[in-house]
């Protein structure tokens, strides 16, 4: 297993955001973590990245317990998060944002290679290289954010709601690109509210509700499960 989480509890102050969450992501898999707003999806990825101050449980990355490893060092290990809401550096140019993605030593040595890869996936980023990231449209910002994640030379990329609030055409394109990660040998943990599209590209999925995992299984199992169909697919 590339990523293994055991009985994770995470808190914001006294408020418990997730309860006893356990999940696994295998090498080369696309695993979806699904659920509605405020179900604890973002908290889970933030905890995996080390951004939550108060948490219990165990997080293993490539069989190593990483609970005590500071967040910036997790990035150096190839455990990359593309955060919800893009979180670009608004007053840096697109190019500078992408370069920041390649901040770690290893990523920096592959900067040009990865930059070409990003420009091949998102040609519009090449054209907007010199534009301030904060001045682009939401879809373009999302491309830049995913591009920045790729610049970090990820082994496991966690995408937190990469299609939230975007136009259908761009949503489709982004799901397509996530599928391409498979060929790039990048493992994916996809956090989404868009259950239908996510299940189409994912190997397996977990459903979160009120901070707990209420269902897990292969995508096809979940797609045919009654409560998922009724609760999320709206059929």
């Amino acid at each position: 297993m590339m990523l293994k989480i055991k009985s994770l509890n995470a808190y914001y102050g006294d408020l418990q955001a997730i309860r006893d969450v356990s999940l696994e992501v295998g090498h080369g898999e696309i695993v979806a973590l699904l659920g509605v707003n405020a179900s604890g999806k973002s908290t889970t990825v933030r905890a995996i990245s080390g951004l939550i101050d108060r948490m219990e449980g165990e997080i293993y990355y490539n069989k190593e317990l990483i609970n005590d490893i500071p967040p910036n060092q997790r990035t150096e290990m190839g455990l990359i998060q593309v955060p919800e809401g893009r979180q670009l550096f608004p007053f840096l140019t697109v190019r500078e944002n992408l370069e920041m993605g390649a901040f770690t030593k290893e990523a920096r040595s592959k900067l040009n290679e990865n930059l070409e890869r990003v420009f091949a996936l998102f040609p519009e980023m090449k054209n907007k290289e010199k534009q301030l990231a904060g001045t682009m449209s939401g879809g373009e910002q999302q491309m830049c954010a995913i591009g920045r994640g790729l610049m970090s030379n990820p082994r496991l990329i966690m995408l937190d709601e990469p299609t939230l609030g975007l136009a259908p055409l761009i949503v489709k394109r982004i799901f397509g690109i996530i599928e391409e990660f498979r060929a790039m040998r990048i493992t994916v943990l996809l956090i989404e509210q868009n259950v239908k599209q996510s299940l189409k590209i994912a190997d397996r999925a977990y459903m979160l509700s009120n901070g707990k995992i209420i269902k897990e299984g292969s995508s096809s199992e979940l797609m045919n499960s009654d409560d998922v169909v009724q609760g999320y697919l709206g059929v």
Binding site: L51, P71, P83, P90, G101, F103
Partner: peptide
């Protein structure tokens, strides 16, 4: 510009 994003980039 964004402290937590910088952390995610591997910046200490």
């Amino acid at each position: 510009q964004n402290r937590s994003s910088a952390t995610l980039m591997g910046v200490d």
